[in-house]
Amino acid sequence: MAPKSLRQGFYHLIAIAACVVTGVPILLVFINALKTRAEASSMSLDLPVDPQWANFLVVIERGKLLTAFGNSVLYAVGATLIGMTVSALAAYVLSRNRTRFNNAIYFFLVMGIAMPTNFVTLTRVMQWTQLINTQAGIILLFAATQIPFSVFLIYAFIETLPRELDEAALIDGCSPLRLFFTVIYPLLTPVLVTLGVLNILGIWSEFLLPLYYLNRSTAWPMTLAIYNFFGQYQSDWSLVSADVVLTILPIIVIYLLAQRWILSGMIAGAVKG
């Protein structure tokens, strides 16, 4: 049997190899974002001779990234606020008052985790509600997509909150709405933070819904802006890379700052407790 330190070395070697495979494509984009067009034509890992910081300015201007960034923030934050508030309210009454009917409603909502969207008929619905091609429409759509998983996670969390809290507040003459927003909502902070980060990241990455339902370039989020930019500048990988960097940088920052909550949310959703 090999000595322990040798075995440990071998394990670390595998782990480092896996990290290299993970990291190189990401590193590649960061390096090439700083190259000239000619240097980036082969997209190699060679360092840029003279870092082209101006690439970012060019991309921001030509790719209309300021508008797209604003749109992405608006959609992510707006939809997450709406989605989580309605989910928390629903999860709360469904979890606390378990009648047969409420259990069925809970099941009905959570089934959405597995449900694929019918984009074709959804177009019809968007037309009827006059929400197609509007920012309000896409925000409500995104909010709706968050509901099944959010209800699932919040419902499980509410089970851990003692009912005595509600009873004490009710005896004091607290209205149901006040009870929820002053007593329950603050206690949901851990699960809401986790869900909030996951939902914001999810919307930031979402490509298909805006592809179907937003055809005005002024309403595009980052993903559609970058896809369109790629279509126009395919031959200029330095600019495409710069655009990619600007799209993923906020995500990487959020990930590094909030990894604890992201991971715990992922795990809670899958393993539960």
Binding site: V86, L89, A90, N102, I105, V125, A144, I147, V151, L179
Partner: peptide, 23 residues
Amino acid sequence: QAYPFYFASGALLLYGVFFVLPS
């Protein structure tokens, strides 16, 4: 009274209109 069903109406409305109805 303590847990009125209308609390669930927002989620049901959004989910119903954008998920279930199209399906």
